[in-house]
Structure formats: C-alpha cells, structure tokens
C-alpha cells in the first residue's frame, strides 16, 4: 500500500544523501585496504599489481614487531587494571539514586571529556616528578586513566539493566555478599565487562596523544612508531598494518556481538 508513497521526491533525496554520506565515511578507509595489497613501493593509482609483500614487510621490520608487543602489553594491562578497580565501583554506583553517587560517577567518567594531549602532557611531568619517570609503568598508568571510564560506563549500564530480584533471592537463600557477587552479579554483567574490555583495549591500542609523550625505547607503542614512520616514508606497509588492525578490531566486535549483541550495549545509555 505504501508503494507510491515510497517514491516521493523528498524521500529519494534523503536516501541519496545517506548513500553519499556512507561513501564519504567508507572511502578513506576502503582505499587504505585496497592500497595495502599493491606490489608497488609507493601508493599510486591505478594499482599496478597485487601482492602481499607489504604484509610480509610488517613482520620483517623490527620496530613494528617491538612496538606491537609493547602496545599489546599496555592494552591488556590497562584493561585488566581498569576492570580490577572499575567493576567494583560501577556496581557500587550504578543503582544508587543519590546525588553523590551520580557525582562520583561523573568524576569517574570525566577523563573521557578531557583533551588527551593535556592528559598525556600533564601525566608525563607528574609521573616523572613522583619517580615513575618515562617507563612502561608510567605508560600503563596513563593509559589506565582513559580506559577506566569505558569499563565503568559499560558495566554500570549493564548492571542497571539486570533485575535486582536475582541478588535478593540469592541473599534470602543465605548467600553472603561475596557469593552473591561471584555467582549472581558477575555472570549477569559479563556482557558489559566483555564489551567494555573490548572498547578499552581498542582505545588503548590506538592511543597516540598520550603514548606520544612517553616516547622512549621500550615504551614506543605501535601508533607512535607508525606516526614517525609516516613522517619519513610513504610506503604501503602503513596501509598493510592498518588493514590488519582493522581486521582484528572487526573480528573482536563480531565475536562480542555474536556472544552478547553489541547494539544493546552501545545504545544502552
């Protein structure tokens, strides 16, 4: 019945606009994926031939490998640390109606709203002054400040969405608070923990503004190495590395989505 209404002009223009919008959104990303399979030693169009040589180059260039190891350790470490201190806080604050709890929540989420370059710059000087210096530990701490909000936010949103009655039933049946947490709350909020951890991991792995300030051998993360590589060379290994990174992020997202449904979590609050 709505066939003729569907053909109206306004709707057609709007649809065309949305299509153009997604071309704009995907073009700069898609082009890098295409460029990563070139066999030329610089990116130029049309692509002269296809090869995987730039993917091999990733595994031959030692600074890439070293920095990937650093980035993985930092991203895992900062996510784990954020879970350790963030999950209890999220649970304690999520359901409280008091103004004070919501103030503390705002405080815990506030690093999200501060310019990263300011956080990185300030952390570098402060951590040097208190003796942590430019080190792996310092970088781990700085990353944790920006990862923590992602854990707190997703876990709190998930916990808010679960029914209180499960915990009450467990408590009535004689479970102590620790048992309630372990056997009831934790399984209920696991989707939030997994999704929050994925975001936190990706945010840390991709972070440049903070990591940049901790640029010393041993603390060079992948984005920092890629940035300095790009300043001197324009070869497609950057494209190959980016493509690989995107692939891993999509795989992560799909897994989390299959397990728990990502739209529930992102649109949750």
């Amino acid at each position: 019945m709505s066939f003729f209404r569907r053909l109206d002009l306004g709707r057609a223009i709007l649809t065309a606009f949305v299509v153009a919008f997604f071309v704009f959104m995907t073009l700069p990303i898609g082009i890098v994926v295409v460029a990563s399979f070139t066999d030329a030693s610089f990116v130029a169009f049309p692509i002269s031939g296809w090869s995987l040589r730039w993917f091999r180059r990733i595994f031959e260039y030692q600074p890439y490998l070293d920095s990937i190891a650093v980035s993985l350790q930092i991203a895992f470490g900062a996510t784990a640390l954020s879970c350790l201190i963030g999950i209890p806080a999220a649970i304690a604050l999520a359901r409280s109606p008091s103004a004070w709890a919501s103030a503390v929540m705002t405080y815990l989420l506030s690093p999200l709203s501060m310019p990263m370059i300011v956080i990185g710059f300030a952390a570098l000087f402060f951590l040097s002054r208190v003796g942590v210096g430019v080190s792996f530990t310092a970088l781990l701490i700085a990353h944790t400040t920006v990862c923590l909000p992602y854990i707190v936010r997703t876990v709190a949103a998930t916990y808010r969405g679960t029914a209180r009655s499960y915990e009450e039933a467990a408590a009535l049946l004689g479970a102590n608070p620790l048992q309630v947490f372990w056997h009831v709350i934790l399984p209920l909020i696991r989707p939030g923990i997994v999704a929050g951890s994925l975001f936190s991991f990706l945010v840390s792995f991709d972070n440049l503004p903070i990591s940049y300030f901790f640029g010393q051998p041993g603390t060079l993360t992948l984005p920092v190495v890629m940035l300095s590589y790009m300043e001197h060379q324009f070869d497609p290994s950057i494209a190959a590395l980016s493509t690989l990174q995107l692939l891993l992020a999509i795989v992560g997202l799909v897994i989390v989505d299959r397990l728990y449904g990502i739209d529930k979590m992102t649109m949750g609050d």
Binding site: I29, V32, L202, L208, L227, Q245, L246, A249, I250
Partner: peptide, 10 residues
C-alpha cells in the same frame, strides 16, 4: 574501529 593513523593515511 580504525586507527587515527589509518584514517589520515586514507
């Protein structure tokens, strides 16, 4: 999900 490096490179 893409890195800032990838987007600017793009």
């Amino acid at each position: 999900l893409t890195s800032i490096i990838m987007r600017t490179y793009g």
